[in-house]
Simulated scan of single mutants.
Amino acid sequence: MQALKIQNVEKSFGAIKVLKGINIEIEPGQFLILVGPSGCGKSTLLNMIAGLETVSKGDIVIGDRTVTHLDPKDRDIAMVFQSYALYPNMTVSQNISFGLDIAKMPKPEQKVVVDRVAKMLQIEPLLNRKPKALSGGQRQRVAMGRALARDPSIYLFDEPLSNLDAKLRVEMRSEIKELHQREKTTIVYVTHDQIEAMTLADVIAVMKDGEVQQFGTPQEIYDNPENQFIAGFMGSPSMNFVPCELSKSDDGYELLMESAGKVTRLLVNQDIPGLAQYVGRSVVLGVRPEQITQVSEDKPDSMVMPCAVEIVEPTGPDTMVTIRLNGVKTVCRVHPTAICSPGEPMFLQFDVTKAVFFDPETELRIR
């Protein structure tokens, strides 16, 4: 049985169709993330799962029940909002137990649940405070606690960390991950932050313009993007896109690559049948920063070429180096001990065994 099944779901506001035939299925205990840029329809889809928006077409099934036209209170879901949505006149304890009170759970049982959730989220000392006396991170924990107290079929998170500062966002992300691993809860989580998507999800639905562009595990989507949008959206720093002329060689295919006035032929040591029709034409090479590094003997299959360094950005564990390939700024990830200075040439090693190629017109992956 699927924990959640979304079947051919569409949503229209008047003549404007904002969701166009969404199909997603997840198993019990899976962590699904809906990710995409602002306006792609991810929050609208979450609100439809919650029952806060009506479905124009299609069905939503939670467990073994079709909930498409049920009220939110009848769907057995709990939602954590971006704005926390806490009751300001209630204490933390009262906020957490609010749903239990509505369900007429006896007070002694409510206290057991509140104490369990407070211990889980490490907010036991805060139970008698009101929201105005809490920090942003503490408020978010209380909002999560209110949802966890319900023990529903599915938890829905609507960009819960977007109001937090960078350091706290990382800490809360780890806590949500740990919570999911411990409780084995089913979660649908909306974010525009692809790092949140990569670190938290079991499966990701990448959305754009009201459609699911790709559905799969984080690693599948990172390594095998279906199109140029997905390749550029998932990953930080994002994938580099370099237009190249493709030619035939004795060993397969070659790419003409120019940097600092010098042209190098890079061998494509992959078996990609679809490249045959692009010989003599332009393709877009998709290569991630970690595939362009300082020269190392550990990668005998890699190609080496001289490049002119434009920008050097130390990050601690790595140094990000910006070069220009075929006129396009390209980010490379090198070891912090690699010697490089802006304006000077540097030999860099290209690992094209995992590089991907796109049609320059359709932006679809060439396979």
Rank of each mutant, 00 (worst) to 15 (best):
P131F: 00
Q140R: 01
N128Q: 12
Q110F: 07
R141Y: 12
A118K: 12
L134Y: 05
E124A: 11
V117H: 13
Q140W: 02
A118H: 13
Q122M: 08
V112N: 15
K104S: 11
V117D: 11
P131Y: 01
I102L: 07
L121Y: 07
D101M: 09
V112I: 14
P131H: 02
S135H: 07
E109S: 11
A118S: 15
A133G: 03
L134A: 04
R129P: 00
D115M: 08
L121P: 00
Q138M: 08
E124G: 02
G136W: 11
V112R: 15
A118L: 11
Q122K: 14
L126Y: 02
K132P: 03
R139L: 05
L126K: 07
R141D: 05
K104Q: 15
S135M: 08
K119P: 09
V142P: 01
A143G: 02
L126Q: 01
M105R: 13
G137S: 13
K111G: 05
K104R: 15
D101Y: 00
V114Q: 14
L126R: 04
A143P: 07
L126S: 05
A118T: 14
K119H: 13
V142Y: 04
N128D: 14
V114N: 13
M105E: 14
A133P: 06
E109N: 02
V142L: 04
A103T: 06
L127E: 05
V113H: 10
R116V: 08
V142K: 04
D115N: 08
R139K: 03
E109Y: 13
K130G: 04
V114D: 10
I102D: 00
K104A: 12
V117M: 09
K132Y: 10
V142A: 08
P108W: 01
R141A: 11
M144N: 07
R139Q: 07
M105H: 03
G136F: 06
S135N: 03
K104L: 10
P131D: 02
M120D: 10
S135I: 10
L121R: 00
P108N: 12
K132H: 10
A133L: 08
Q140S: 04
L121C: 02
R141I: 10
G137M: 05
A103P: 08
E109M: 13
